[in-house]
Design a binder for these strands. Structure first.
Length: 580
DNA sequence: GCCGTTTTCGGCCCGACTGTTTTCAGTCG
């Protein structure tokens, strides 16, 4: 059982306890533990096997340690089963809907017998919800739209979560000596922000043995189908995995075929036909039309690796992130593919938090983590006071923070610390920090954390007003979306991007895999309109700094090159470019 | 349920917004 699954079980326990009305601090203990587990770098499974003391981990005490051991050894948790005797587990899903929490879910169950999403929908449709005390017409309508949105996105897993399942699976497969090559194709390889399933390709000497090895992977919930060359399984997380064993001479063709996208493939095949070739997952062939039905008919031209497949079609190899039929084939033909940005090109991280607000590590720990990643500079950008729950800073606190920044800067001359802040954009577009303080910051990020559902016109006006403040440097997570959780705000993004470009404010690509905001398409538009772009992790702990790669991946999908991204610049140039 | 230069009990992030209220409960971040 992987950390992310253990965390999901603990999260479910917390949700059920909350619906039951348990001690809120006990609930929080489960949530805290779930978060620690989800973010722990080493698999807890291994720690359990090595009989390490799990209570050494933060927020893990005697009980949590026992739960984790039980999950690792039995694959399920008695406590969760007991709780779901009292309260149906399906109620937890209801609380995933925005605006519907534990109390309301409980009431709907008690009063209307609502247990599932379908129950909820029919109760809302027949108007039963609006009649309950504490509920009303608006709540009922909101529930219906929330169900609709929830259904639309169900079935796609965030890329960051998929990675947590894919990496251990790949390690498992590579540990088998019969496995010669293995790679995940599909949208996972194209680094789309969410994936529906994993398409795993394998070259193996003993196909049958490897298939058996795969279908006995411990994290499998169900084997859907299993044949000589292809098996489909569902992992306990619900993620579907297709594994295909391919011949070595077809590996490149298969990798290209299963990486997609579909639109990219269609165009490649048309191109093959124009050149008197036939492209399939088996390879590139010339002739053989008379033997219809035989995939190997004709002369084998290419297929061993992707390079030779593309080459045989008169194209340069195209990075997977670009394979969306957005002009990459034409660019490859003209040898004008962009020189895509890489993690190595990033010289500093421009959004992170510390224990001064809601971060988990101290300023100095964050600094040391940036040094360890080879950065030349970083910005410390704790929250402003409007975000009370994060312990946001007011002017006086900010001044105190500067004193500490000066102290640690003196101790660590090897890296530049920028005094920054993530300042809330208030409801009327004003900023949550006095002008005199804003003027003294090295970098000012602004972002929306409240009133996400203003009418679109007002929202646009609000953000554009904030962009007009002369101290502002970066618009952080511009749409406010959280993937699979919160839709982007409704506003005129084009007008906002134009305004940012005109006033010399950079827009952020927030690299956190829960956000990825702006997304790839929006980034392309931002660049088109002349916006400067920064990629930042929004780190709340030292390990979050490694999320930079998720941002870079989306930037690559947007065709960005190092020169498009401000935090690839050396420090003095960055400072100059931030001037407005 | 976790944690401890507040240490074995008694704390534990808290203010704003929404929709339903007529003084507030629930939700969110």
């Amino acid at each position: 059982m992987e950390n992310i699954e253990i965390a999901a079980v603990l999260q479910n326990v917390a949700d059920l306890l909350e619906i039951k009305g348990a001690n809120p601090f006990r609930i929080r203990a489960y949530r805290n533990a779930a978060q620690v587990v989800a973010e722990w770098a080493a698999p807890l499974r291994k720690l359990v096997e090595e009989e390490c003391d799990l209570t050494e981990l933060p927020s893990i005490g005697k009980d949590m340690a026992r739960h984790i051991e039980e999950l690792v050894s039995r694959g399920e948790l008695m406590l969760l089963q007991e709780l779901s005797q009292d309260v149906p587990l399906s109620l937890v899903e209801l609380t995933r809907l925005p605006g519907l929490g534990a109390k309301k879910a409980r009431k709907l169950w008690d009063e209307l017998g609502v247990e599932t999403l379908d129950d909820l929908e029919s109760a809302a449709e027949r108007g039963a919800i609006a009649t309950l005390p504490g509920f009303g017409e608006k709540t009922q309508d909101k529930i219906l739209t929330a169900i609709d949105r929830y259904r639309k996105r169900r079935g796609r897993m965030k890329l960051g979560d998929a990675d947590q399942h894919a990496v251990p699976l790949l390690d498992y497969l590579r540990a088998n000596p019969e496995v010669k090559r293995v790679e995940v194709a599909g949208s996972y390889r194209r680094r789309r922000e969410t994936v529906r399933d994993l398409d795993v390709l394998v070259i193996a000497t003993q196909a049958e043995a490897v298939m058996g090895y795969f279908t006995s992977y411990p994290d499998i919930k169900q084997v859907e189908s299993s044949g000589e060359t292809r098996s489909t399984v569902v992992l306990r997380s619900g993620l579907q995995v297709d594994l295909r064993i391919v011949a070595p001479q077809s590996y490149g063709a298969a990798l290209s075929y299963f990486t997609g996208s579909k639109e990219h493939n269609v165009k490649l095949r048309m191109r093959a036909i124009q050149r008197g070739l036939r492209l399939s997952e088996y390879g590139v062939f010339r002739g053989g039309e008379e033997e219809a039905g035989d995939p190997w008919a004709g002369e084998f031209v290419a297929g061993r690796d992707e390079n030779e497949v593309y080459e045989s079609l008169g194209l340069a190899w195209i990075p997977p992130e670009l394979r969306e039929n957005r002009g990459e084939i034409e660019a490859a033909e003209r040898s004008e593919l962009p020189d895509l940005i890489t993690v190595g090109a990033i010289r500093g991280d421009l959004q992170m938090h510390s224990t001064w607000s809601d971060g988990k590590n101290t300023l100095e720990e964050m600094l040391e983590a940036c040094v360890a990643r080879g950065y030349e500079y970083f910005a410390i950008t704790d929250h402003s006071k409007a975000l009370a729950m994060t312990g946001g800073l007011d002017g006086a606190k900010l001044r105190e923070q500067w004193t500490e920044i000066d102290e640690i800067a003196e101790r660590h001359p090897g890296i530049e610390i920028m005094r920054g802040m993530e300042v809330d954009i208030l409801g009327d577009g004003a900023l949550d920090l006095e002008d005199a303080m804003l003027a003294q910051l090295d970098i000012v990020l602004i972002s929306v954390h409240s009133r996400f559902d203003l009418p679109p016109g007002d929202q646009t006006e609000r953000i554009i007003k904030a962009l007009g403040h002369p101290a502002v440097n970066v618009l952080a997570h511009p749409t406010g979306r959280q993937i699979n959780r919160r839709d982007p705000m409704q506003f005129d993004l084009d007008a906002v991007l134009q305004s940012a470009a005109d006033s010399g404010v950079a827009v952020e690509l927030n690299a956190h895999p829960d956000r990825l905001d702006l997304n790839d398409v929006q980034l392309m538009r931002a660049r088109e309109l002349g916006c400067d772009i920064v990629i930042s992790t929004d780190a709340h702990r030292t390990t979050d700094l490694d999320l930079m790669r998720y941002g870079v991946e989306q930037a690559r999908r947007a065709w960005l090159q190092p020169a498009d991204v401000l935090n690839t610049l050396p420090f003095t140039e960055l400072v100059r470019r931030l001037q407005r």
